[in-house]
């Protein structure tokens, strides 16, 4: 998959996962992997720079909690992150709709029998 397309998509996917409630890095990676049926075969470690970038952009905020004797960093969406997720969703749906429209027309054209 094109890396530029993948970069924008991964951020949107992470925001979507975080939007469902406070979560942490490993959970986010597992959720994305399970929901995409392993389509995004990314290194799990590459999620963390993206998460920290979203945190720097104030789209998510973090907090540390003690879990099973370990410190765990949780992420949750900010109001700015919610707006950004909505915008990215609309943008992606428009993009996918456009792509689907083109691909759908081509498929329909071939399905119509020629008289």
């Amino acid at each position: 998959m094109d890396s530029r397309l993948l970069s924008g998509a991964v951020e949107m996917l992470m925001l979507e996962v975080i939007s469902h409630g406070r979560t942490y890095g490993y959970e986010i990676s597992q959720t994305v992997d399970s929901r995409s049926n392993g389509y995004f075969s990314l290194k799990e470690g590459s999620l963390y720079p993206a998460l920290h970038r979203l945190e720097t952009q104030k789209l998510v905020k973090s907090s540390w909690h003690e879990v099973e004797g370990r410190r765990r960093k949780y992420y949750e969406l900010t109001s700015a992150g919610i707006k950004a997720l909505d915008a990215k969703k609309q943008e992606w749906q428009a993009f996918a709709s456009g792509i689907q429209g083109v691909l759908g027309e081509g498929h329909s054209a071939t399905a119509i029998p020629a008289f």
Partner: peptide, 8 residues
């Protein structure tokens, strides 16, 4: 801590 938590 974040990396070790993920690995654990």
């Amino acid at each position: 801590d974040e990396i070790l938590d993920h690995l654990q």
